[in-house]
Design a protein around this nucleic acid. Structure first.
Ligand code: MN
Ligand code: MN
Ligand code: ZN
Ligand code: ZN
Lengths: 141, 141
DNA sequence: TTGATTTTGAAATTCAATATCAATTATAGC
DNA sequence: GCTATAATTGATATTGAATTTCAAAATCAA
């Protein structure tokens, strides 16, 4: 059992929620993908494992995975919410290619430090941030 | 006539589009606001000047203002697109208060420089970026 | 003024996301 | 294992922002 499955089981127990086959399948599908997939993407993959799974359950389960700190919402500017792995992954920002749509994960500790400084200068208490740089990736140049 | 109105007239002429009363009113309303307003907000203000104005026209006109580099779309993470003044305004990032919803405009030239460096390191050609820090503002602390 | 072309507002439509609800399922206690 | 209770499910309807459609109205170059 992966660390994430254990986390999910604990989270469900804590909240008096139930571990269902659908939830297991959706977490499994989510963990096996490395890209930033939309709910619809994940739904289409999950359907192959259990054709009776409904879209609503996928939406609901991804919300649970977010609450359990297993998944993180990513908004790359197209209309739909995407999800990425959170557990065991450091904070990072995104370089989003306008040509091919892929996104590179990157982080610069100096930027992170300066962001805190910028907040302090404005008397602002930072909790989280989002930095996305849009442009053209190496492969598409 | 403000610089923006002149820009808008030139843009419309260049694209063989027409200058209508509705477009004038909507630009006027937009220029008189300093906050980041949603289309619905702007629609409600515009209706007071001309009660026959429709929502679709406000959506369409703000898209034109964006194309003319007069307005800039701002996505502060609630479901709706907001707009801010672009002409005559330097690039800036946003510190968004999770308590009161207001946003502080801020910029740090060191961060901007490091962002370029981060892109270079990944062979990525940056075109634009978005940085939003969510937290609690001075007043709400 | 004319008339081709664009624009308009109301209404219909799209699309992601959420809510509703009756039927099904998980699970704690026996 | 059974049972009772509460949670979950998938189909369907609904929401809300944004877009499209379309016939009537307005713009503006000639
Ligand atoms: Mn990522
Ligand atoms: Mn701003
Ligand atoms: Zn690319
Ligand atoms: Zn505040």
């Amino acid at each position: 059992m992966s660390g994430e499955m254990g986390m999910f089981i604990s989270y469900l127990k804590k909240k008096d929620l139930k571990l269902t086959d659908q939830r297991k399948i959706i977490l499994d599908v989510f963990l096996k993908t490395e890209r930033h997939l939309s709910v619809e993407d994940l739904y289409n993959i999950a359907k192959k494992k259990d054709s009776s799974i409904g879209q609503a359950t996928v939406f609901r389960t991804l919300k649970l995975l977010r609450e359990a700190d297993i998944a993180k919402e990513v908004d790359l500017g197209d209309g739909k919410t995407r999800y990425e792995h959170k557990y065991g992954h450091e904070h990072h920002d995104h370089l989003v290619c306008l040509e091919c749509g892929r996104s590179i994960e990157a982080v610069d500790s100096k930027i992170e430090r300066l962001q805190d400084g910028l907040c302090r200068k404005h008397g602002f208490l930072p909790q989280r941030h989002k930095m996305e740089i849009f442009g053209i990736c190496k492969k598409c140049r």
